[in-house]
Design a protein around this nucleic acid. Structure first.
Lengths: 210, 210
DNA sequence: CTTAACCTTGACCATACGGTCAGGAAAAGA
DNA sequence: TCTTTTCCTGACCGTATGGTCAAGGTTAAG
């Protein structure tokens, strides 16, 4: 095997590289074991670093966990952009479902960490729920209400629609293991497409947009 | 305060009483802290028993946890009965949604424990998934397919419909904290009824049963 | 070259946890 | 009543975990 001589890394690069390395490992371990079941040693092993090095970059286990959760929350919020600037529910909600299904597929661990955090009473991100998420929710609920008023969809309670969107899309990540067991294996590309199509068809028809 | 003289408990009663006491406490603690975060001491305190007494009834933490998960699974399966013997999807799926929403309301802790178990790869109930749950699923999928063939609903993929039913109803338990935060307080009776109605309306219309 | 700032890590510590056990109390059986 | 079985519990134990630290290495700045 030929290993090309590696230029010594600069300070910033080292820091950046190790932090993301640790965060990736942490996300996986937290997802698989939960906060209480995760150990710094497991994360360190997965990251390929000595445990003491983790504590150099992240003072405590909570700090590391908090970072992981916040990262996920960012990704979450970005998916929302697909809903804006849409002429109606078919495009807006359709795109939102696509985006969230894609996140469930690409970041199942993040989704699990988030679910776990919320299930345990959101000890770390309660303030986010009360500020950012609440604002986001009321904004989108208003958007949905506008579509209803314009006769573009049936008069559904916007909040419950949002809950259904979250629940259905995230289920493919959070309960992925159950789905894989029932499916006798991971979903194929085609099956993911079918899932997306099914969800979109059911919800868009369910809200009277089709 | 008047405390009536209590007849000394018989052996069987003691055993039964303490076991359910422990199981209830365990369900709550496991739901709030996850398996890894839960401690036997916390469960003992909540049950009002010394820790050593827990180990008298349940040899290990895993044994106790396994019991909790199995109990939930039983409740889960019973809700399925509402789906059978229904003339069509409106009655069958409608009743199933009602039943599952009621479980989410009455047994939110159980739902969380189940979700946590599945999210972490179902280390304890993998065999249930592969046997009981798979059989149940294929059976109901066949039932749904029959309704489709009889023209009682649109040609939806039955598996994805089941996932949607599970996801949507359980979301009200598993993400109850998030919902309560956005709602600025627990759902009232009326709000629960509205939630049920919304879910039923969206899904039943979504599958073309209305 | 010298110095300061940053990075790395093996060894170590205090604590908390799951689990054990011996010995006693209470009920059931003979 | 006497014996056996079941229940109860404080005290204890080994281990694993989060976190610390001091000493050494490496890069950047002066």
């Amino acid at each position: 095997m030929v290993t090309e001589p590696v230029r010594p890394l600069r300070r910033n690069e080292i820091r950046q590289q190790n932090e993301t390395l640790i965060l990736q490992a942490a996300e996986k371990v937290f997802a698989e074991a939960g906060f209480g079941g995760a150990t710094m040693q497991l994360i360190a092993d997965l990251a390929g670093l000595p445990k003491a090095n983790l504590h150099y970059y992240f003072a405590t286990k909570e700090d590391l966990y908090r970072q992981v959760v916040q990262n996920i929350f960012e990704i979450w919020l970005h998916a929302a952009d697909s809903m804006d600037n849409a002429p109606g529910p078919i495009e807006g909600i359709g795109a939102y479902i696509d985006a969230k299904m894609e996140i469930s597929r690409r970041h199942p661990d993040g989704s699990k960490v988030w679910a776990s955090e919320v299930m345990h009473g959101a000890p770390v991100i309660q303030d986010y729920l009360e500020t950012t998420l609440r604002d986001w929710t009321t904004g989108r609920a208003a958007l949905i209400q506008r579509w209803i008023d314009e006769g573009k969809m049936a008069p559904i309670n916007p909040e419950h629609l949002l809950y259904m969107l979250w629940a259905t899309t995230q289920h493919y990540a959070d309960f992925g293991h159950q789905i894989e067991t029932l499916n006798a294996g991971p979903l194929t590309d085609a099956q993911w497409q079918a899932a997306k199509a099914s969800v979109k068809a059911m919800i868009l028809r369910g809200i009277g947009a089709i």
